[in-house]
Write a protein that binds this DNA or RNA. Structure first.
Lengths: 189, 189
DNA sequence: ACAGCCCCTTGACACCGTCAACACCATCAT
DNA sequence: ATGATGGTGTTGACGGTGTCAAGGGGCTGT
């Protein structure tokens, strides 16, 4: 099989096992069954591996958000669907989600195509918010409304993922109920 | 001067200059003007240094939140003040803020007193939200309301800090205006 | 004078990311 | 058929890291 994808898969698995700090070029090579330099034929350096994973993450999240936003219902309902999809993505794919928002690992400016993928993903939310704001809204208000929605789901996702929202939210079921409660509260406005 | 605090200050400065990934035990020792093993007399390992900084960060944030929550005005106004203080803390002390929510660096369970400091800090927000919810509210609803508020400000802080909210928010002034706009939007409910 | 402790140093080890040089092997033009 | 080429992988080295182990020097209390 293509070494390139083997490297990516080994990296993902390694992070899942040993955490972000445990990602090691040499261990990845070992798991892929090649010498410690082989991965360098496909990735310029460690940051490039991370960037590739981040790109994948953005793609998957983008798809999920697009799917959620394409559902039936009014703008508010669809926006809530997108928010739910965002938070659930973080819980489903903790490795990707964490990687995507850990700028000290990648400097995405070095990888413009990944950055572009990120903006495409973000665009889904942005478009929906613009629709909600209506034609008459000024740019500033639209931006604030976007930040409001994004901040809420992003904050909820990260806090939940890092276990900061109390120990009562141990199981997946409790987390999902909590997400629903928060979204419902937010939607009542 | 106490080597312990010199180590902490060198660490903080080093992170500010070289980023979280740039924090190195040996470089810290070098900057403190001691041998590479001297810091180990005060900190068991690298994670212990980070934990000490995190504790400091929680203390400072806790003070700021307490101050903000003690102002005049109704619950809603004070809650907004607390939210503002939270986001501004992230912008004022990016090193601390980032450290505080990067669990792969510390495993706070190893440092219960730091964890406790964090919970104390969190308690400020929690208390205020409880007041807002009123006596009649159930535990679940109170928790959801807490998460709602915390998620919003936490998400806003992290997205702003990582430069994810668009390039137009380069300067501090623009950031503060944006924060106000988002908080105003959120408060209108 | 001497034992003990605190603070610190020196030295080693395994591991890391990455540069440089080389080996293999399929492809392809001659 | 041959020889050059280029993609794919190797081995080896370098300087850096975190941390363990051992020792050293100067107070302090006896």
């Amino acid at each position: 099989m293509d070494l390139r994808v083997r490297v990516l898969e080994a990296s993902e698995q390694l992070i899942a096992e040993a955490g972000l700090a445990g990602l090691s070029m040499r261990e990845v090579a070992r798991r892929a069954g090649v010498s410690h330099q082989a991965p360098y034929h496909y990735f310029a350096d460690k940051a490039a591996i991370v960037a590739a994973l981040v790109g994948r993450g953005f793609a998957v999240l983008g798809d999920r958000l697009a799917e959620a936003s394409a559902g039936r219902g009014g703008i508010r309902e669809r926006l809530e669907q997108v928010g739910r999809a965002y938070v659930l993505f973080a819980l489903d794919e903790p490795v990707y989600f964490r990687l995507m928002f850990r700028p000290e690992l990648t400097d995405l400016k070095r990888f413009p195509e990944v950055e572009a993928e990120g903006e495409r993903t973000f665009g889904v939310l942005q478009g929906l918010v613009a629709e909600l704001a209506g034609e008459g809204a000024g740019e500033e208000e639209r931006e604030a409304l976007t930040s409001l929605h994004w901040s809420l789901v992003h904050g909820l996702a990260t806090l939940l993922l890092d276990g900061n929202l109390g120990e009562g939210l141990g199981g997946r079921a409790a987390q999902e109920r909590h997400i629903e409660a928060v979204l419902r509260l937010f939607g009542r406005r």
